[in-house]
Design a protein around this nucleic acid. Structure first.
Length: 286
DNA sequence: TTTACTTGCGAGTCCCTTAC
DNA sequence: GTAAGGGACTCGCAAGTAAA
């Protein structure tokens, strides 16, 4: 299965139309015809399309599950949508969009969740619809007024907020990597922030599954790979594999050098490196 | 001064929970 | 059963900021 591209988006519209979604639900009904987004220079004529939101949300979550299914299989896991785990603050109303787990159940224990995904994807490029069922590409995201997926600052803030919410929900979350999946680049203003989120351990990465969002310039990768544009399925597998197989631990604190030194001194008395690390993690969390 | 970009807010929609 | 309340979703709008 191919990564996200314009055909994926056209397929979304065709499928939605087949399932009795009306053109008015999916497109802006402008003077020049039906458009996915308002082209730059055109007038929105007072419209703010909202009826597409939940449809594209459902489509991207299912699509992501499908693309991760062979990867999960390779790692001996299942790709599961709408994962609920009370210990991680993932409730039915605010579940994990996608997760790789040891079982295929929606309700999960923390120890069975190996990788959590927060999905922030939308229609990226612009399309024109003509009756009865023709959907044609008319321009990339720079040629319309909308701001897709991770290019919106509030989408970034929501993704970060959701991840922090998991991290502060308890000690059970400290062994589970969290990755934000998008299908657009990010803005320049978030380059430093995503790298810091990665090095500080809060979020293990922002991955765009759209290798060619535009033919012009865009942020492809950040220096420390906090944000990466995934170019093929192999890369996606390798990235996932690394996160699932490395036994990682998240920790954070705000303590004095005196206290930190004490913790290091006590932990260093353990015999093996692993034991030192375990002692350190125990002490820093108390 | 004009233009381009960034940002936070809130609207419309869907869906779940709760109360009666 | 059903109405009310509220959370989460996406994205247009307008105000603020930076660049030309």
């Amino acid at each position: 299965m191919k990564l996200w591209n314009n055909k994926t988006e056209i397929q979304f519209f065709i499928e939605a139309l087949k399932n009795f979604a009306s053109p008015e639900q999916l497109f802006y009904n402008l003077q020049d015809g039906y458009f996915a987004y308002v082209p730059k220079g055109s007038n929105a004529e007072g419209q703010t399309l909202q009826s597409r939101n939940s449809l594209i949300g459902q489509y991207t979550e299912k699509w992501s599950k499908t693309i991760f299914e062979p990867i999960a299989k390779e790692l001996g896991l299942y790709a599961v949508n709408s994962v609920v785990c009370e210990e991680l603050g993932l409730t039915r109303q605010s579940s994990a969009d996608l997760a790789l787990c040891t079982t295929d159940h929606t309700n999960q224990k923390p120890e069975n969740i190996k990788l959590l995904f927060e999905i922030k994807m939308s229609v990226v490029s612009n399309y024109k619809f003509t009756q009865p069922n023709k959907v044609e590409f008319i321009g990339d995201y720079k040629q319309h007024k909308g701001n897709p997926a991770l290019l919106r600052s509030d989408s970034m803030l929501k993704a970060i907020g959701k991840s922090i919410n998991i991290r502060v929900s308890g000690i059970a979350s400290t062994k589970i990597p969290v990755v934000v999946l998008g299908n657009s680049p990010i803005t320049e203003s978030y380059i430093k922030k995503v790298d810091f989120l990665k090095t500080s351990g809060v979020i293990q990465g922002f991955w765009s599954l759209n290798p060619n969002p535009t033919n012009s310039d865009y942020v492809k990768n950040t220096p420390k790979l906090g944000f990466q544009t995934i170019l093929n399925n192999k890369q996606l597998l390798n990235n996932s594999k690394e996160l699932v197989t490395n036994d990682m631990n998240y920790f954070s604190s705000m303590i004095s050098k005196l206290k930190l030194g004490e913790i290091i001194r006590i932990s260093s008395q353990e015999t093996t490196d692993i034991a030192k690390a375990e002692k350190f993690l125990t002490l820093i969390r108390n």
